[in-house]
Amino acid sequence: MVLSQENTSDINAKVNSMVEIIPAGNLLEPISESFFSFIKRSLFELSNLKFALTSFVVNNLRRRYRRSVLGFAWSLLNPLTTMIIMTTVFSIIFHNNPKEFGIYIFTGILPWTFMLDSITGGSLSLVDAEGFLKKVYIPKLFFPLVVVSTEAVNFVLSLSSLMILGLILGMPIGLSLLSLPFALAILYVFNFGAALFLAISTVYFRDLTHITRQLLQAVFYLVPICYPLNAVPPKFLVLFKINPFYYFINLFRIIIYQGQFPQPKDWLVPSVIAVLALILGFLLLKRTEKDIIFRL
């Protein structure tokens, strides 16, 4: 691209020199740009919107707690109260040890909520952004990224509440927590890939957002969140093993609940799934990038 050789001192010049448009041919045909250079260009465009990204995320969070007395504290308190209620109820019903079971449940529920909110919220992100996309030039992947980043911040805050709960219940805080950022990064990549893919698909098939929601509701029971995996009859175990969501939750369980460093294979499977999701999202984006605006 011509512009990449330009003096990069001026952010605006960079942004706008990207308006260079490659001949599109038939809109749904893949354009003559390699996948690698497409990703490079996309990331370059995004790098100019770093400030926009943080502004959007911060504003999303602010809006959630605007005008409440406790403000941001709610993002810690909300998950904390939910956890306390559920731990109490479940330990009464199932006569489980609240310390063990509470932590068990929440190492499952928190990553699950992160995935659920990113994916369902992300799937509508482009449709909802119609007003922006038709008025200013913004790369399409910006909007799913905003949703996933907002949820990631929420997730980190919820994890902190879990740590607080853990301290109250006397959970040992071990060195294994050092691997938490890596697990978070992997899940972030997966969520972004999935959200990007679904956001684009939803522009073409609006029903998809409802279908996704229903499917995820079913999947919830196929992830050992509210019950331990050993409560599952062995013949159904395969259903859990083919479920990609299981591997992400498993990762967080090992780190927080078991307090151990995950084994290489515990890292490998979710990483591969995450990268695949990301590639799939980018492939679809490359194919449809110049068509999306006409479908909104």
Partner: peptide, 8 residues
Amino acid sequence: KVHVRGKV
């Protein structure tokens, strides 16, 4: 084709 260069 559309080529634009400059701060828009």
